[in-house]
Design a binder for these strands. Structure first.
Lengths: 242, 242
DNA sequence: TGCGGTCTGTACGCTGTCGCACATTAACGC
DNA sequence: GCGTTAATGTGCGACAGCGTACAGACCGCA
């Protein structure tokens, strides 16, 4: 394939054996999604599962009062629409696009059928779902105990890990929506981080200047989630070889 | 069985077909667990999965500073040790016993093997894991946006739903640990609820007096989680018959 | 019947975050 | 360039929850 797009840019699709991949490959459909797009509404029936390659999505818990809080972030390490194979038919959370990019989508029926083969894909999807659970759990604790600044550091790191660059295109307003805090609280924290030389930003572009110190500034939650994903990726690498 | 204990008091075990149940039944071992017991540590290898019948357990995210926050509560509708079948070998969260009682435990190897039969049990366990994800997601949002009093209402309801009585044996101190707040904050909220006639309590015994108003006082989070479980239980009932 | 410990109630000052209002600055289309 | 709009900066009062300290209430036990 001469295209710059390749389903195997998604770590899960990249890790399944050839025979399983060939079975679903004809059904994979490349889609481009823009920031702020609502991919799934909570409790909505799911037509497709999505395997992101370059986009980042956000799983949100949206409240009656109109506010929302991010429960997890999903990029090319994962899949959107876990309830398709988990057995429910409807989305477990609201899902929005946080960073524009591409994904390969697969009809729910086909994804479910392949899952039910009980092969490698099933194993990978379940293993991935597990990391998602850890991320959600850690986010819960983080919301309860840690400062906005710590959470911002965690959030920046989680996102930059899922992008090829060290620049994020994201306004403080949007970050505030993700973290479920005021825009001004993000501004205050961002000013401090910029003054300290950890990041620099202007009008929707955030540069990570000192990743190491940013990690030090973040709460332990980032480390825990990161380790979990690293162990998943190590698993995936094993699969891809073996 | 003349015993008052029966594995089928657990909704998941009660919903699998006879042939699958017979296969695991010889391996089920009744255990009695006491409040505050640490069942799993985070990231610890899991020797057993547990199907609670009368106990209630709490999945906790524990922080470096020694505090913790509950991410989900599990009773006889569920199972402890989802990572056994999800493919990781280690616990996704810390798990403690919140209310003394009984559970049937099953060696991890046997649980995993039965799961890999891709039969009814697999479907049920995945379906249950899904409700767990919804509960965790909602807890995340609740921690972010709702008052201690609202969270206390939610917590009381979630627990009372998993017990046969309308009395909870639980000190304010323990509730505070679960919700990740100060003991005094629970006292203040509890005083208000008692003054309003919704509950009455004394020294570790909490009576629910007006369940309906308690639901009204709780945030939407309880309803959402409850509906999710109701839909799971409806599924289970279908399975048990069909 | 009194004693010790556990559980609950209350008070006070502190801090982080909120909600709001408004000022300032950079990017973009014309 | 020029004005519009989106994005960011800042200030201020309000308030929920925190940490600490201590007082009362109830329970079991000697």
């Amino acid at each position: 394939m001469s295209s710059i797009h390749d389903p195997k840019q998604n770590h899960l699709l990249g890790a399944i054996p050839d025979d399983e991949f060939e079975r679903i490959a004809p059904h994979l459909e490349l889609v481009s999604l823009e920031r702020s797009e609502l991919l799934y509404e909570f409790d909505e029936a799911l037509e497709y599962g999505y395997f992101p390659t370059t986009l980042i999505a956000s799983l949100l818990c949206s409240m009656e009062d109109g506010t929302s809080a991010e429960v997890a972030v999903v990029g090319n390490e994962g899949v959107l629409g876990v309830s398709i194979f988990m057995g429910g038919q409807t989305s477990l959370t609201q899902v929005t696009i946080q960073h524009s990019g591409h994904a390969y989508r697969l009809k729910s029926s086909i994804l479910k059928a392949e899952f039910d083969h009980c092969g490698s894909l099933q194993h990978l999807l379940l293993r991935y779902t597990q990391t998602l659970i850890v991320q959600m759990s850690q986010t819960t604790g983080c919301n309860r105990r840690h400062s906005v600044e710590q959470q911002l550091c965690r959030w920046l790191l989680l996102n930059i890990d899922r992008l090829p660059t060290d620049e994020l295109r994201m306004t403080q307003e949007l970050i505030a929506n993700m973290l479920g805090v005021r825009r001004e609280s993000i501004t205050e924290a961002a000013v401090r981080l910029q003054d300290a030389g950890l990041i620099s930003y202007s009008r929707g572009r955030i540069q990570i200047l000192d990743r190491h110190r940013l990690e030090a500034q973040a709460c332990e939650c980032y480390d825990i989630v990161k380790k979990q994903y690293d162990s998943l990726l190590a698993d995936l690498a094993d699969k891809a070889v073996g």
